[in-house]
Design a protein around this nucleic acid. Structure first.
Lengths: 230, 230
DNA sequence: TTTACCTTTAACAAATCGTTAACAAGATAT
DNA sequence: ATATCTTGTTAACGATTTGTTAAAGGTAAA
């Protein structure tokens, strides 16, 4: 089938917290994100043929988004550019499109929509997002499809099962505290959420019981740890 | 819609069964395929300006693929040539590329990838395929006409049915989230759009129910996945 | 306007998931 | 050692989601 490389995004955003929120979200999608906080740094960071999509704030210190886009276009006339702008002024929009902006989002925007638009470009340029596939013992865990497959079996996980397994795997060989799991996946860490979690741990153990090397161990009063022997 | 000429492919392959498999697949894409079983026949068959892409097996009886390429290049220095080669020998590749092979594939290869590479050439040379045709089990789905046809039947799909089927097929074997489908096709993801989508899913299932291998599976609260077994 | 066709809404059945309950088994502290 | 708290496991419940068919609503062509 087609090649699957990690998608690389250049994100230029001077608002630190927003920048990190976007970065986090895109990384959860399996993309690699380089975040630049001002236009000057971005200009130095940009390398032709390196990024698959650029996301630029319009208002930036030192070198603004439009100038940056011009710079990028000099070196790469194809890379999709998405502008982020605080106002919906038509002139901005037109100016942006003249410089070869391919899309444009008005703040505040929905991050899921940004992800969607990026994916549209990736598809258009024939690129594909890698699917996160974890190897757990002899199981393969496809995060996106929430499928846990072995040589002969395929178990469709539910959302919570998949979230929990991913969290444990992301911290494999390390203890994950009960309340960390609970807050992250259940949003609360009251008694019942805790019991619910225990039920899910039990389910995951059962699903993976065919591979003796995989263990979800409990530390009394602390939390759980996913270990894979050898 | 404007009239678009049918794409013509010259396929030279001495392995009869492989030849027919490739021919079938390309024809399902709406291309016209002339299959020659040896280099000599191919040489007589080739007419300048007639074919849009040539696909040549390297090892052929009588006149081999490289000699054939030389012959073709004499008369048409632009037509893209793709070599099929059983071995990945370096000398083979170098010899081929010098004679103007534009791409090559090592057997055994994925037919979908061959189709993809042909499409790259068609795009590059400004030619377009008259119509996208997808193979879904034993159905053929013509995106432009929105027709879903089997050996004996032909079902005219509506716009939404066709959009939905295309979206699912573009992500076949992968889960497509409900809200992704909804935003992309319905433009909104409110409750009623969701119910409407469920109705369309039900319709598509019914249309394709004759082929047991095709399944549109639901993952509770997540989305749908089109799978084609085998 | 009528007609034909497509999409949405409604209505009800069926399936699924997360939570809770209930009880057993471990672990820890007293 | 034993009382208390935590965890393991199974099953049942209830809420939500989905499957499906039919009716209603919309829209564009005749």
């Amino acid at each position: 089938m087609s090649e699957v490389k990690q998608i690389r995004i250049l994100l230029v955003e001077d608002d630190e917290s927003l920048g990190f929120v976007i970065k986090d979200n895109l990384e959860q999608q399996g993309m690699h994100v380089v975040l630049a906080m001002d236009g000057e740094v971005a200009q130095r960071t940009f390398t032709p043929k390196h990024f698959d999509v650029c996301v630029l704030d319009v208002m930036l210190p030192k070198v603004d988004g439009f100038a940056l886009a011009e710079h990028i276009r000099l070196y790469d006339k194809d890379v999709p550019i998405i502008f982020l702008t605080a106002k919906s002024m038509k002139e901005d929009r037109i100016k942006g499109f003249k410089l070869g902006a391919d899309d444009y989002m008005v703040k505040p925007f929905n991050i899921e929509e940004l992800i969607l638009r990026i994916q549209v470009f990736l598809k258009r340029t024939g690129k594909q997002q890698p699917q996160e596939q974890y190897q757990i013992g002899y199981y393969t865990f496809n995060v996106h499809n929430m499928e846990l497959s072995a040589r002969d079996s395929l178990k469709q996980l539910t959302r919570k099962e998949a979230d929990l397994l991913k969290l444990l795997f992301d911290n494999k060989e390390n203890m994950v505290a009960r309340n960390v799991i609970l807050k992250q996946i259940w949003g609360t860490d009251d008694y019942f959420a805790g019991r619910s979690m225990d039920v899910f741990i039990s389910k995951l153990r059962k699903y993976m019981s065919a591979d003796q090397r995989i263990e979800i161990v409990n530390h009394h009063g602390i939390g759980f740890k996913l270990t894979i022997k050898e």
